[in-house]
């Protein structure tokens, strides 16, 4: 996560909200504290941001991933757009293309329709940008790791030999298959 993302999060917390949007089950992006988000100088406009959030969520939907977490990818791209005009216009163009493919607004389309749009966009610029940001930034974020259950670095905690490396609820294999540890 970049420093600009951290400051963004701090800003949102100070504004009393940690989430910019709530995406409802039907895919509708509802504004909650959007003014707080918009109050920060953003390179991308509200519609582009909302669409990006939903695209990220449609690509990698997860019950444990809150909308606030999906904002990690939006924030990251917003940061890049603020430094590079070509990124900004590519995001706007990409969203416009998604809207066109959805026959209106992507964010208003049904889930089924949105999956069709994604399919039709595979390999295209904005699709790749969003997928890349989700894979490389969203899933490389410790807040996302925490909810998905990946524990990150272990050496500074002494590894797992005393911290649950055999605690899964399956039968313990016999000793010839899985001998005792050096500490036992």
């Amino acid at each position: 996560m970049t420093n600009s993302n951290i400051s963004r999060r701090s800003f949102l917390k100070k504004a009393g909200k940690t989430s910019g949007f709530v995406v409802l089950a039907g895919g509708v992006v509802q504004l909650t504290s959007f003014n707080a988000w918009a109050a920060k100088k953003s390179a991308i406009n509200n519609h582009v941001a909302k669409t990006m959030l939903l695209v990220g969520k449609d690509m990698f939907p997860g019950k444990r991933f809150s909308d606030d977490l999906y904002m990690i990818a939006v924030d990251s791209l917003d940061g890049k757009a603020s430094k590079d005009e070509s990124v900004k216009s590519a995001l706007a163009d990409g969203v416009a293309a998604f809207d066109k493919a959805a026959g209106g607004k992507y964010i208003d389309a049904s889930s089924k329709k949105r999956m069709k749009v994604l399919k039709s966009m595979e390999g295209e610029g904005f699709f790749n940008t969003m997928r890349g940001e989700m894979v490389n930034v969203f899933f490389n974020n410790p807040r996302v790791w925490a909810v998905a259950g990946w524990e990150g670095a272990s050496y500074d905690k002494g590894g797992y030999y005393l911290r649950g490396f055999q605690d899964a609820d399956w039968p313990q294999p016999p000793e010839d298959a899985s001998p005792k540890g050096w500490w036992e």
Partner: peptide, 23 residues
């Protein structure tokens, strides 16, 4: 996230479910 389904088809509800339940 990068390797479960590599390339442009690496997304979607099924992949999201796996990553969401990484543990």
């Amino acid at each position: 996230a990068a390797f479960l389904v590599p390339g442009t088809t690496g997304y979607g509800p099924r992949m999201g479910k796996f990553l969401d339940n990484y543990d």
